[in-house]
Nucleic acid binder design. Structure first.
Lengths: 157, 157
DNA sequence: TATCTCTGCTTGATTGGTCAAGCAAATACT
DNA sequence: AGTATTTGCTTGACCAATCAAGCAGAGATA
């Protein structure tokens, strides 16, 4: 016999509750901790690292602003500002897009590539130590699928 | 035969990689989505909801600023400002602490409690639809423990 | 009890992000 | 072709968080 008002969903079970709380903490702690590791270690904030990394994974080491913004989970204006910071450090160059004169490509410079090469072990280590380490013995592929759903699915209202 | 320089950790396996990427997306999307749900639904931002909720779970519906800040994952100054916003809405009152005249208690008002009662179903529904739904069939307790570790453990360097 | 240090919180300055408005190039419409 | 609309990005205004400095009360020390 369901509630005709259909308002309140099931309250959380204790396990659900602790999972939600723990996830909340991880969402707060993890990015800050990894960023702090990167900055302490290599003077490269996580946001900037992410931009360089996404650029480096492209065949020509260049990408349009909107695409890069999406991959970095950043607004377009946020991306503009990140690229500005990287440009003043000489790690990225901006080039007008050939096939569309409104567009810009962010291009990884050699200095940027070098910076990335020197930094990724630090990032990798942080991710392992602070996160993956605690999931040994888990079915990571299955977990990943669930998180992908949670990250992409529009909720079924 | 291990690397004598001991520098670079194991690169990520494909499964690890997709888990990390998916978690990154969830960490970005989930708080914004839930906050948007709450604001769209009840005009109550997630940060303010969290503060009210933590206050309500205390026997006297009051808490010292530093304790509340910790539970909300907020700096002390961030908490001061959140409480200011809540105070101007009449949802919280501030009282000098009796046993320590430097301290303040944030006290949930009746209006604040009412606001919380009217809002929690929205929060609960958002958490279910956007997150828990995708973890049906998982061992939630085990997952929660892993996340707790990741959230609290200092990394083993 | 006078003073020194420490603690709890607030305030000021800064930061890294967002959204909204603006601008120039591209595209669609007539 | 000429105009209207759309698109890609930047800029300006804002906002919620942080850190650092300040302040008042508490506790320790002489």
């Amino acid at each position: 016999m369901s509630n005709p008002i259909a308002a309140t969903p099931q309250p959380l079970t204790p396990d659900e509750e602790s999972l939600v709380r723990a996830l909340g903490q991880v969402m707060h702690v993890l990015p800050r901790a990894i960023d702090a590791d990167m900055v302490g270690d290599r003077q490269l904030p996580l946001t900037e690292y992410t931009a360089l990394m996404n650029l480096s994974e492209t065949p020509e080491r260049r990408m349009r602003m909107n695409e890069l913004a999406a991959l970095c989970y950043l607004s377009l204006s946020g991306m503009t500002r990140t690229i500005m910071r990287l440009e003043t450090q000489g790690l990225v160059r901006r080039e007008r897009c050939e096939e569309d004169a409104r567009g810009w490509n962010a291009v990884l410079t050699d200095a940027g590539y070098a910076r990335l090469e020197e930094s990724w072990p630090s990032h990798l280590a942080a991710v392992r130590r602070r996160f993956l380490q605690h999931f040994e013995g888990f079915d990571l592929a299955r977990l990943a699928r669930a998180f992908q759903q949670a990250g992409t699915a529009e909720p079924t209202d």
